[in-house]
Amino acid sequence: MTEGKPHVHEHAAGHSDVPSDLTLRVKALESLLVEKGLVDPAALDAIIDAYESKIGPRNGAKIVARAWIDPAFKQRLLNDATAAIAEMGYAGRQGEHMVAVENTSKVHNMVVCTLCSCYPWPVLGLPPVWYKSAPYRSRAVIDPRGVLREFGLELAPEVEVRVWDSTSEVRYLVLPERPAGTEGMGVEELVDLVTRDSMIGAEKLRAHVRGATP
């Protein structure tokens, strides 16, 4: 409470800077919703904490690494991704209906949400800025090979490209190809190889990615 502060503060150099219009709009909305009992500040904090520190692409990487070393799990993942992912302990909002699509030497899958930014939160966290941008949302469908080229991935002409448009009901996880030269690796090492972008289909994994960026 700021009431009852010594009067001298009224004349001191600084009052608090009025924050941005966006901050004020959010504070207005939040305080009104809290007063009406529609949201609980502690619940909001818990959501923010989860997405900032617990839910992220490492969840997806663990699924991918397990699919690479466990053929039965991989089959379950491709047959019913929602169940297979729940089996790994990752469930929750925006992951209710998951579909896993497998990249091979002949087929390259990539994921977009042309409407807004639907994305499999429980396994990948929140989407990267480019995924939410208008250029990606429009170009991924029109010119997927051009988009992939911009990401540094030049696909051979004989590789079939499949673009999956996410919706509020169905989210996609790309199962990237296991890179050559990783046969001897353990699961932890494999998890470290799997990048976020590879699980959106914007990147192909290479074994030497490991250690390339310190």
Partner: peptide, 10 residues
């Protein structure tokens, strides 16, 4: 973050 969490909660 606050705007994100409010939409999720509601």
């Amino acid at each position: 973050a606050q705007a994100f969490a409010m939409a999720v909660r509601l």
